[in-house]
Design a binder for these strands. Structure first.
Lengths: 209, 209
DNA sequence: GATTTTTTTGTACATTCGTACTAAAATAAA
DNA sequence: TTTATTTTAGTACGAATGTACAAAAAAATC
């Protein structure tokens, strides 16, 4: 089988192969979320899946291709969840509120996957030592916030921002959501509803005129 | 030499030994900041320090003892920098502003060390897979924010908070500062002054009545 | 100046990991 | 049923790493 085709022409993947790959990715997510990026070896992942290490090598070109799936799948699911919910709102204020609510709900419902993404994105590096995903990942995730802010500024419902102060605002909202995720790892019994309510309040107050 | 004494009775450390340890820690910080936690081997660190790998083993019981110094030293320097600046302010509003300003300035002036701390704290795990530093590190760093908030609430200059909504506020302020650090890794030419001004504005608006 | 202690170098070893590879097993095709 | 293909298990190998260790070098002490 041509490994290259696997990542590019997914139509050629059989049902059983997709299932195996999905199972392996799922176990990789669980393993990374539990023991961390550095300790998540192919052996560990195979063990959790009750398969031989060789099976992973058969279905994925290498460890890198496997780990890449984690943020890729997450981002697709995240976008599918968030985008329609924002678009269902008219006013920027409501959009911002829904953005926060939807993100926290999504994170809450996909804890392991989020933890694994954080581990992967913040550790996976290219050969020259630079973080591989950090840049595009964060920019892509920042975009919807920035467009909500832009809309709100234009409509005059948000206070005035310069281009770069709007960016700080967007980064801060994003950081607050990431901070929620980290707090969730430390305190799994967190009251998510209350946290959500308070975040919405904070950023409503900090964006309004 | 009794290695245990090194970490407990520092009085017995000679000048030359303290200098060596400081040099090695400095190189460990540089290495981790540059290539990341996972790639920062003792060999890499020794190479950067132009010493043999064995020297590190001689001055530190093991890799763990070396890596521990990074957050420990950072936290001490952070506290020495931040605390007096906050205490010099009277009102909670000014304290919060100075807290943000001082943190961003300190991070800006100690970029490599901060990056290394983030790498270490978010990767170093105990044998059972749990993050080693995350808990105490974050709690300790959260304390001053929470006490500023408490004071501001009591004095009536901040809006009303429940105990847990005040905690969300504190976590969000902390997350915003961490987010600034991450943005600094991605964009080293960031306008720190402007970022600082905007963060102060955001959290002034979100805490006031 | 001789001796002891401290410090450094360099090597060796055990372990872990990703990957390659072979043979067996399972499944599909004929 | 026989043959071909796909999938799996298990092993082996090279590379990298933390640690231990022995011998040399440097510094301190007498």
């Amino acid at each position: 089988m041509n490994k290259k085709n696997k990542s590019t022409k997914q139509k050629e993947m059989s049902f059983i192969e997709k299932a195996r790959r999905a199972q392996i990715v799922k176990c990789a997510i669980e393993t990374i979320a539990e023991v961390g990026y550095a300790q998540a070896s192919l052996g560990q992942i195979a063990k959790r899946a009750n398969i031989s290490k060789g099976v992973i090598s058969y279905h994925f070109a290498n460890k890198e291709e496997l780990l890449e799936q984690i943020p890729i799948e997450y981002y697709l699911a995240w976008q599918a969840y968030i985008t329609p919910r924002i678009e269902a709102q008219k006013s920027p204020k409501e959009k911002l509120q829904v953005y926060i609510e939807a993100n926290l709900a999504f994170i809450d419902e996909n804890r392991q996957h989020v933890f694994a993404v954080i581990e992967t994105v913040s550790n996976k590096r290219t050969d020259d030592g630079k973080l591989q995903f950090a840049a595009d990942h964060d920019e892509a995730i920042l975009l919807p916030i920035e467009s909500i802010l832009t809309q709100g500024i234009q409509e005059g419902v948000f206070r005035e921002f310069t281009k770069s102060s709007a960016r700080v605002m967007a980064l801060t909202i994003r950081s607050a959501i990431d901070g929620f995720t980290l707090e969730l790892t430390r305190n799994p019994h967190l009251d998510v509803q209350e946290y959500t309510r308070e975040l919405v309040t904070i950023f409503d107050k900090s964006t309004k005129k």
